[in-house]
Amino acid sequence: MRKAAQVVFATLWWATFGLVSALMFVGATVCFVLTAPFDRRRVVQHLYSCFWAQIMFYLNPFWRLKIEGRGKLPWRGPAVLVANHASLGDILVLFGLYRPYKWVSKAAVFKSPFLGWNMRYNGYVPLVRGDKASIIEMSARCHAWLEMGAPILMFPEGTRSPDAEVKAFKDGAFRLAIEAGCPLYPIVHTGTADTLPKHGLLVKPVANCHVRVMDPVDPANFHGDVGAFRDHVRELIVAERARMLAQ
C-alpha cells in the first residue's frame, strides 16, 4: 500500500514538474528577449530560474527548505561556490539561494527540453566529463564569467553521491579559485537525498532540506597548492554536514 502511494505521488509530481517547466519556459523566453540586450550577466534570467526551481517547494507543503548564510554570498564579484552533491534535489534547493551565480553542468543536460534550453539562456557552463577539450573550454568560460563579476557554482564531487556521504573532490573548482584569485564559498546541504534519489524516479513526499553557506576561504592561504586547498575545503564541508545532521 505504501509503495502504491509513493508511485501515485511520484506520478503526480513528475506530471506537475513537466507542466510547470513547459509554462515557465514561455516566461523564460520572454525574460531572455527583454533583458539579454542590457543584462550582460543574465542576473534577471537567473533569478527567474531560481523562482522556477522553487515552485516545486512552494507547491508541496511537506517539502521544507531552510537556508542559512545566504547573505554571505556576493551579488556581484568573482567567487567560486562549491557544494556537496547527493541528489538532483540539490539543484532545486541551491536555486533557493537567489544569488546570480553560473552553474557548471553536464553538457547533456543542456539538450533537455525546457530546462536545458533555459540553461542556455542563462549562459551556464557545459562540461563533458573526461573530455580534455571540454574541460579547457569550461575553464575558459568560467574565467570569462568571473571577470564579468559572476560567481561560479560547481559540485566538486563531479557526480551525485549514491549514499549522500561526501565523496572525494576533484581539483577543478579549487584550481579555478586559485587562478582567479577569488574567494571560495563552501555550501553544505542535507535532506536532498529525500527528494530525488540518485537511482529511480520515486520522488519522496516528505523532505526536510537544510542549506548552510559557510564563510569564504581565501585561496591565497594555500600558496598555489590545489590539493591542500581542495582537502581543506572538503574537511570543512564534511565536518559542517555532520554538525547539521546532529542538530
Rank of each mutant, 00 (worst) to 15 (best):
228 A>E: 08
198 K>F: 07
168 A>W: 00
34 L>T: 05
195 T>E: 05
89 G>V: 04
81 L>A: 06
79 A>S: 09
135 I>H: 05
54 Q>L: 10
184 L>F: 07
180 A>V: 11
145 W>M: 02
117 W>G: 01
41 R>P: 06
46 H>P: 00
191 G>M: 00
129 R>K: 11
169 F>H: 03
231 D>F: 12
179 E>Y: 03
185 Y>E: 06
115 L>N: 02
134 S>H: 08
105 S>Y: 05
134 S>Y: 08
53 A>K: 02
71 G>T: 08
176 L>G: 03
138 M>V: 04
177 A>C: 10
11 T>F: 15
71 G>A: 12
94 L>I: 06
159 T>L: 12
9 F>K: 10
175 R>P: 04
82 V>Q: 00
182 C>F: 10
106 K>T: 06
158 G>W: 07
68 E>N: 04
225 D>R: 12
59 L>K: 06
6 Q>K: 10
198 K>V: 15
68 E>G: 01
57 F>T: 04
30 V>K: 04
37 P>S: 05
201 L>G: 01
32 F>W: 15
50 C>L: 00
106 K>M: 03
193 A>Q: 11
170 K>V: 08
202 L>K: 07
193 A>W: 05
58 Y>T: 14
71 G>F: 03
234 R>A: 01
42 R>K: 03
243 R>G: 10
13 W>D: 10
11 T>D: 14
221 N>H: 14
205 P>D: 02
18 G>S: 03
12 L>G: 06
126 P>F: 07
120 R>F: 14
234 R>V: 04
42 R>P: 01
62 F>M: 15
151 P>I: 11
131 D>H: 01
234 R>N: 03
173 A>R: 12
12 L>K: 15
28 A>S: 10
247 Q>L: 15
23 L>S: 11
79 A>E: 09
214 M>R: 08
152 I>C: 00
45 Q>L: 06
245 L>K: 14
78 P>D: 09
189 H>G: 05
36 A>Q: 04
84 N>L: 06
117 W>Q: 10
167 K>E: 15
235 E>W: 01
164 A>S: 14
41 R>S: 09
163 D>I: 11
112 S>E: 12
78 P>F: 15
114 F>W: 11
133 A>R: 15
44 V>C: 04
231 D>E: 15
203 V>Y: 02
35 T>W: 08
25 F>I: 03
166 V>L: 02
22 A>F: 15
113 P>K: 07
187 I>G: 00
187 I>T: 01
59 L>M: 13
182 C>V: 13
224 G>F: 01
52 W>Q: 01
219 P>T: 12
178 I>Y: 05
69 G>Y: 07
114 F>E: 00
235 E>F: 02
205 P>W: 07
216 P>A: 13
202 L>Y: 05
86 A>L: 08
229 F>N: 01
54 Q>Y: 08
27 G>Q: 03
183 P>T: 06
162 P>V: 11
48 Y>K: 04
210 H>Q: 06
114 F>A: 10
158 G>Y: 08
27 G>C: 03
148 M>Y: 01
